[in-house]
Design a protein around this nucleic acid. Structure first.
Lengths: 152, 152
DNA sequence: CCCCTTTTGACCTTCTTTGACTTTTATTAT
DNA sequence: ATAATAAAAGTCAAAGAAGGTCAAAAGGGG
């Protein structure tokens, strides 16, 4: 069953793609009505899929004529990777954090489809055969090493 | 007396055969209800009959709209890779064994230069932050998973 | 009988959805 | 101008909807 959050995510990304300034403005309540969900679901989507780490910023205005503006940040690719290696990934990286990073790299055209698959597979929970309490550490090490390789 | 696990196994394999992309998505709880067994029995079947060695990968998503996806590896994509996953790499893979496999794949033109680099980085000793005695096991898991992804 | 495989169930973790309540801003009526 | 009202968006916690894990119990074949 398709998650409504995913549908909304795709919808917003499509709107951004169609825009000519990498940004869109939406009306929260209107959009919620359109997708027949609660308004706060829009916030949930923004919080989980359009964060700074994923290369987006949001700003908003309340009151009559209010809006939410979502902007996709342009960024230098190697700078971005460097940032991820040094700031985003610490000593520990959860499954979903890792997945989001790889997904973002793909969406930004930093890595190809196959490279995405390879990286995903490399940091997948099922790939890392170790006690659960160590998986996140190992995952962090692997992803950092891979990204570092791509930088050189 | 037919074991329920065998029946479920056959059922899933039949679904995959009928699919047009060698993959199916199932709802764990729904399937358990259908076969009138405990949900964790589905996991048991997946763990014992749909492993990489047996030519399958699985992924899953929790929460609302969650699912389990089972994909059968395409043997004809690269006979060589399939062989490596299912036969050559066991539970343990040393540094040099791993390096040799990656090198061979590259020489055969199965993977690109960048893909080679990514794989090397992923199974590099320095990437795998774990007790020494576990590295080879983890390396095996990772490389198998990576190769498998290229066959789906 | 013993060992290996299967089955079951209790408990855990993750992710999504919903709704009540809050805060901010704009508009409108006095 | 000011106060009241309406029109947004924000927050947060609870409920809901999955799947995961692990170990104990139950079966079955040698």
């Amino acid at each position: 069953m398709a998650r409504i959050s995913d549908i909304i995510e795709e919808f917003i990304k499509e709107l951004i793609r169609e825009s000519n300034n990498n940004a869109i403005e939406i009306q929260r309540n209107e959009m919620a009505k359109y997708f027949d969900c609660s308004p706060s679901q829009i916030n949930y989507v923004l919080m989980t899929r359009f964060t700074l780490q994923q290369g987006y910023t949001t700003e908003s205005q309340r009151g009559g004529g209010g809006y939410i503006k979502v902007t996709q940040l342009l960024m230098n690719q190697s700078q971005y990777m460097y940032h991820i290696i040094t700031k985003e990934i610490g000593n520990s990286l959860t499954k979903s954090q890792g997945a989001r990073i790889v997904q973002t790299l793909k969406e930004r055209g930093v890595i190809s489809h196959r490279e995405t698959e390879i990286m995903r597979a490399a940091i997948d929970d099922s790939a890392i055969l170790s006690p659960i309490n160590m998986k996140d550490q190992i995952r962090a090490g692997i992803l950092k090493n891979i990204l570092a390789t791509l930088l050189s």
